[in-house]
Simulated assay, not measured.
Amino acid sequence: MRNELDNKFLLQVFDKIRQFGEKKDDRYLLNGITAFTDMDGYTLYVEDPKVKLQYGFHNQYHYDYESKDDVESFEKKLKQIDKEY
Protein backbone atom coordinates (compact mmCIF):
# COMPACT_ATOMS: atom_id res chain seq x y z
CA MET A 1 0.00 0.00 0.00
CA ARG A 2 1.27 3.45 -0.77
CA ASN A 3 2.35 5.78 2.02
CA GLU A 4 0.35 8.78 0.91
CA LEU A 5 -3.31 8.94 0.07
CA ASP A 6 -4.03 10.99 -3.05
CA ASN A 7 -6.41 13.52 -1.50
CA LYS A 8 -7.68 14.89 -4.80
CA PHE A 9 -8.45 11.38 -6.06
CA LEU A 10 -10.35 10.45 -2.90
CA LEU A 11 -12.43 13.64 -2.92
CA GLN A 12 -13.20 13.14 -6.61
CA VAL A 13 -14.36 9.54 -6.05
CA PHE A 14 -16.37 10.57 -2.98
CA ASP A 15 -18.17 13.18 -5.08
CA LYS A 16 -18.89 10.65 -7.84
CA ILE A 17 -20.36 8.22 -5.33
CA ARG A 18 -22.64 10.98 -4.05
CA GLN A 19 -23.63 12.06 -7.57
CA PHE A 20 -24.28 8.65 -9.11
CA GLY A 21 -24.84 6.36 -6.12
CA GLU A 22 -28.05 5.19 -4.55
CA LYS A 23 -28.94 7.23 -1.46
CA LYS A 24 -30.05 5.36 1.65
CA ASP A 25 -30.60 7.58 4.68
CA ASP A 26 -27.43 9.68 4.94
CA ARG A 27 -25.24 7.27 2.95
CA TYR A 28 -24.57 6.73 -0.74
CA LEU A 29 -23.81 3.35 -2.31
CA LEU A 30 -22.11 2.80 -5.68
CA ASN A 31 -20.41 -0.36 -6.99
CA GLY A 32 -20.08 -1.85 -3.50
CA ILE A 33 -18.60 1.29 -1.95
CA THR A 34 -20.45 3.31 0.68
CA ALA A 35 -19.69 7.00 1.23
CA PHE A 36 -20.96 9.35 3.92
CA THR A 37 -19.90 12.19 6.23
CA ASP A 38 -20.21 12.87 9.92
CA MET A 39 -22.80 15.38 11.14
CA ASP A 40 -20.64 18.46 10.59
CA GLY A 41 -19.35 17.29 7.21
CA TYR A 42 -15.67 17.58 8.16
CA THR A 43 -14.97 13.86 8.16
CA LEU A 44 -15.60 11.63 5.14
CA TYR A 45 -16.08 7.88 5.34
CA VAL A 46 -15.57 5.60 2.36
CA GLU A 47 -15.90 1.88 2.94
CA ASP A 48 -16.77 -1.55 1.67
CA PRO A 49 -17.48 -4.63 3.80
CA LYS A 50 -13.76 -5.26 4.49
CA VAL A 51 -12.09 -1.82 4.46
CA LYS A 52 -13.02 1.42 6.16
CA LEU A 53 -11.35 4.70 5.27
CA GLN A 54 -11.84 7.78 7.40
CA TYR A 55 -10.63 11.07 5.88
CA GLY A 56 -10.73 14.23 7.90
CA PHE A 57 -9.65 17.74 8.59
CA HIS A 58 -6.15 18.74 7.43
CA ASN A 59 -5.96 15.70 5.12
CA GLN A 60 -5.65 13.23 7.98
CA TYR A 61 -6.80 9.73 7.19
CA HIS A 62 -7.02 6.29 8.72
CA TYR A 63 -7.56 2.89 7.11
CA ASP A 64 -9.16 0.04 9.07
CA TYR A 65 -8.62 -3.38 7.45
CA GLU A 66 -7.40 -6.90 8.14
CA SER A 67 -5.34 -7.71 5.06
CA LYS A 68 -3.36 -5.93 2.40
CA ASP A 69 -5.33 -7.80 -0.28
CA ASP A 70 -8.53 -6.23 1.04
CA VAL A 71 -7.04 -2.75 0.70
CA GLU A 72 -5.84 -3.47 -2.83
CA SER A 73 -9.32 -4.68 -3.79
CA PHE A 74 -10.85 -1.58 -2.17
CA GLU A 75 -8.53 0.74 -4.09
CA LYS A 76 -9.35 -1.07 -7.36
CA LYS A 77 -13.04 -0.40 -6.71
CA LEU A 78 -12.30 3.30 -6.14
CA LYS A 79 -10.27 3.49 -9.37
CA GLN A 80 -13.06 1.75 -11.27
CA ILE A 81 -15.62 4.27 -9.99
CA ASP A 82 -13.33 7.11 -11.00
CA LYS A 83 -12.88 5.62 -14.47
CA GLU A 84 -16.54 4.74 -15.12
CA TYR A 85 -18.20 7.94 -13.95
Results as ranks from 00 to 15, higher is better:
R18Q: 12
R18E: 10
R18F: 04
Q19R: 13
Q19H: 07
F20K: 14
F20L: 08
F20I: 05
F20N: 15
E22G: 05
E22S: 12
E22V: 13
K23Q: 15
K23Y: 05
D25E: 15
D25H: 14
D26S: 14
R27K: 15
Y28S: 08
Y28E: 01
Y28P: 04
Y28I: 05
L30N: 10
N31H: 12
N31Y: 10
N31L: 11
G32H: 01
I33V: 14
T34C: 11
A35R: 01
A35N: 05
A35H: 02
A35G: 06
A35M: 04
F36P: 00
F36Y: 14
T37M: 07
T37V: 06
D38G: 08
D38A: 06
D38N: 15
M39L: 11
M39T: 10
D40L: 11
G41H: 03
G41F: 02
G41K: 04
G41A: 06
G41R: 04
Y42T: 09
Y42M: 10
Y42V: 09
Y42I: 08
T43Q: 06
T43R: 06
T43G: 00
T43F: 00
T43H: 00
L44C: 04
Y45K: 10
Y45C: 07
V46N: 06
V46G: 06
E47V: 02
E47H: 04
E47A: 09
D48K: 02
D48L: 08
D48T: 03
K50Q: 13
V51W: 02
V51P: 00
K52L: 13
K52G: 09
L53W: 00
Q54C: 07
Y55I: 01
Y55P: 00
G56R: 03
G56M: 03
G56L: 04
G56S: 08
G56E: 02
G56H: 04
G56W: 01
F57L: 11
F57D: 10
F57G: 02
N59A: 11
Q60K: 14
Q60F: 09
Q60I: 08
Q60P: 00
Q60E: 13
Y61A: 05
Y61L: 06
Y61G: 07
H62F: 09
H62S: 10
Y63G: 06
D64Q: 15
D64P: 01
D64S: 15
Y65D: 03
Y65T: 05
E66F: 12
S67R: 13
S67F: 09
K68W: 05
D69T: 13
